[in-house]
Simulated scan of single mutants.
Amino acid sequence: MLPSKERPGWGAFVGSQVQSLRDEGVDIDVIHIRSDVSKWEYWKAKATVRDHCRAKDYDVIHAHYGLSAAPCLFQTQIPLVISYCGSDIFGHTDVDGKTSFKSAVLAAIQRLFGYRAAQVIVKSGEMKEQLPKAVQKKTHIVPNGVSFDRFHPGDKQAERARLGLQPDTFYVLFPYDPLRLRKNYRLLEQAIETLNSQGHTLAPLIMFEKHPDELAHAMRAADCLALTSYWEGSPNAVKEAMASNLPIVATDVGDVRWLVSGVEGTEVSTTETEDFTTALRRIVERGNRPTTARSQMAHLELGAVARQVIEIYKFSSQKRKKG
């Protein structure tokens, strides 16, 4: 799960964390498992991990995503840290928000990998609660960080001109693939259709798997962010919108309610169409006022989060030395 030339936005949060850790002085070698090419890449990575471990005395191995930990389970000398990302704990949902049997079984297997980890990182308390009790004892809640240099407020009309958008339309940013069922795009479609029938002029601004810089421009051009998912861990788009002072309407998933608590210009809703439409209407009717969320999230800046991860590395490495 890393950005590539073909998919510059895929796993961008992992790429950002790698760079922020390097900025803090951590020496990192990256093994990119191209699971988007084939799931067999997880199995093939076993040999790559083995060769790296033989060639260099690492203090810790950090696997992002449950299945990425699988190739690391065959070595026992180097402490393993697993960062769960969401679907590796909850599974994948269908159009009705239900998890298939196959996906549920695969998620259950990945949760068991936590037994072999020295330490585990999750993005929210909701994710932690899904892990076995013994694994929870060594689990840390560390949401992904946000680049304040990339995501920041700006000139909305200038950004709209750059993207070729209408100056007076109320744009609702949806930064996900509408075909990903768990993202529940149809909820936003229904809400926009209802509000437009009542005299408003809303339009979705869909942007996914783009370079993070492009997403940052879209954040500054939009009027609000919509998160309609059935579940999330700690949605990066919400934190990026907060850093951009962009109003937010989101379903009550992951740590969203905690993230936006006390932030004026944010709404948390159920996945019921009427509730979400009402929440979006409140955002529309408050006008084009930005939020002040950026000033309330210094603890989620990339460097601050990187330093938390480094402490987890140190703890894992110290336990190895004591052993």
Rank of each mutant, 00 (worst) to 15 (best):
I89C: 03
D23N: 05
L225C: 10
H52Y: 14
G86T: 04
K183S: 13
I109E: 01
N144E: 15
T271D: 15
Q198M: 05
Q308F: 00
L80A: 05
S234D: 06
W231F: 11
T270H: 11
P143V: 01
N245S: 09
D213A: 15
E41N: 15
S147K: 14
I121S: 01
A158F: 07
G145D: 01
L202E: 03
Y313I: 08
Y84K: 08
A117G: 09
S269C: 05
P290R: 04
F315V: 02
F74I: 11
G262L: 12
Y65L: 07
L2I: 07
I61N: 02
V284W: 02
Q19P: 00
Q166M: 11
V81Y: 05
W10H: 14
L202G: 02
P178R: 10
R50Q: 12
R281I: 11
N288A: 11
Y176V: 09
K123F: 07
F315M: 06
M127C: 04
Q17H: 05
F174C: 09
S100D: 15
V142E: 01
T270E: 11
S103Q: 02
S269D: 04
G114S: 08
G303M: 00
H140S: 06
Q190F: 07
I121H: 02
V95Y: 11
Q296H: 10
R294Y: 06
G86F: 03
D36M: 00
L215C: 04
H52A: 13
A243W: 11
A158D: 14
K102R: 15
K137I: 09
A161D: 14
K322C: 11
S244I: 01
M127W: 02
K322D: 07
E193D: 06
K319T: 14
T93V: 11
S197Y: 13
G287N: 10
F151E: 01
I28V: 14
D255I: 03
R54K: 15
H62S: 04
T93Q: 06
E272F: 05
S316N: 02
P167E: 13
K133V: 10
W231P: 02
